[in-house]
Computed example of a mutant assay.
Amino acid sequence: LGSGPYLNVNAIASPVGVARLWQIIFGCVTVSLVAHQAGFSAAYGTFCMFVWCFCFAMTICIFTLEFTRLHTYLRISWDNFTISFAMLASLMYVTASVVYPVYLLQNDCPYNNCEVRNYRIAVTISSCLAFFAYAAEVFLTRAKPGQMVGYMATASGLLKIVEAFVACIIFGALVNGSQYNRHIATQYCVVVYSLCFALTVIVVCMTVSGKTASLKCPFDRLVVIYTFLAVLLYTSTAVIWPVFCFDKKYGSPSRPYGCQRGKCPWDSELVVAIFTYINLLLYIADLVYSQRIRFISQP
């Protein structure tokens, strides 16, 4: 007979296990409230419902696999996978917690159905609490000084998740009538966003799958080189995109009068510009932290 229990009690009794239990509870409450009375509509509501259902299902799977120890049979780096998902879920939940009340919570009570409004307030609160539960897992499992952990638990690894998520926001704004195909320069910016996003996803996937050791060159060196190139590429887009979108010669410095809110190309171009600068700062911070990790890992 094999030694050791079949079930992993630490999956429930540990601080991380408690955080996951709260994630499941608040995720279940959020989905139940939306399905029962709060409801959702349009693309923004569908996005929020997808976030809550996806994160709830994934958390159930992670909790079950760890409690039954079945995760040991998976050919992935489990610690890298779980913290990557926790970081992604934190970002998705905080986005849904902002988008849902902004677009679906209208203060027209008592002239409308107050019960629906109250349910939507409860959904927003429950979503925020779930975000804090996921953020607590990230805080508990992140890299600490002198501790041997996977790459995704480091500041550089967590920043990779944020960079990819910000890129997804940029892509969403690009397809929402940004008119990026008007100029060759803005098309170049889209190529930069796509290239950096693809390489970031490859880095995350290789780390989570545990395939970095199969490379014929040092993985950390490749990551640093790629991050440096991403900083240069994003710096170029941070200059080119605003010029070709907001300069009088190519675009409009201010929002056009009468442009329909939510369907105005200028708004989408502004969102792309803002998150371009955000991602540039993230890549710069990533480059700084990656140098620090390399320094610590050396004798």
Rank of each mutant, 00 (worst) to 15 (best):
F197V: 08
A198M: 15
C205P: 00
L195D: 05
L174R: 07
V239S: 12
L215A: 01
E269T: 10
T207C: 06
C189H: 01
P218M: 03
C259T: 01
P242K: 14
L215H: 03
A185G: 00
V190N: 06
Q187R: 12
Y180F: 15
K263A: 14
S178I: 00
S178P: 00
G251L: 03
C217R: 11
C259R: 08
V166S: 09
T227Y: 08
C259N: 03
V239Y: 07
N181W: 07
V190W: 00
A167Y: 10
Y193S: 01
T237R: 05
P242S: 11
T235P: 01
T212E: 13
P253S: 10
A213S: 12
T237C: 10
R182K: 14
L233F: 11
A185D: 06
L222V: 07
P242M: 01
L222M: 08
G210C: 08
I170P: 03
R261T: 10
I202L: 09
F219W: 15
D267Q: 13
L233A: 12
S214A: 15
S194P: 07
V192P: 09
S209H: 08
V223E: 09
D220A: 08
K216P: 07
L270P: 05
C196F: 06
V190Y: 01
V243Q: 12
S236W: 04
D267C: 04
Q179W: 13
Q260R: 11
C189K: 04
V190F: 01
L229W: 06
V231E: 02
H183M: 15
Y234N: 02
G258K: 02
S194E: 06
V224I: 15
D220G: 09
F171P: 02
P265I: 03
K216L: 13
Q187H: 11
V231A: 02
Q179G: 03
F244G: 04
C205Q: 04
V203T: 09
K249S: 15
V204A: 09
L195G: 15
G258Q: 04
P256L: 07
R182H: 13
L215F: 05
G251E: 01
T227I: 06
K263T: 14
L174S: 11
S268E: 02
M206E: 06
C189Q: 07
V204T: 08
Y180P: 00
N181G: 05
K211C: 14
K249F: 12
T212G: 06
Y226Q: 14
A167I: 03
D247Q: 12
R261N: 13
G177P: 00
H183T: 07
T237S: 03
K211R: 15
L215E: 03
I202Y: 14
R182L: 05
P242H: 03
L222Q: 10
G258A: 04
K248C: 12
V224S: 12
S214V: 11
M206L: 15
C205H: 14
G177H: 13
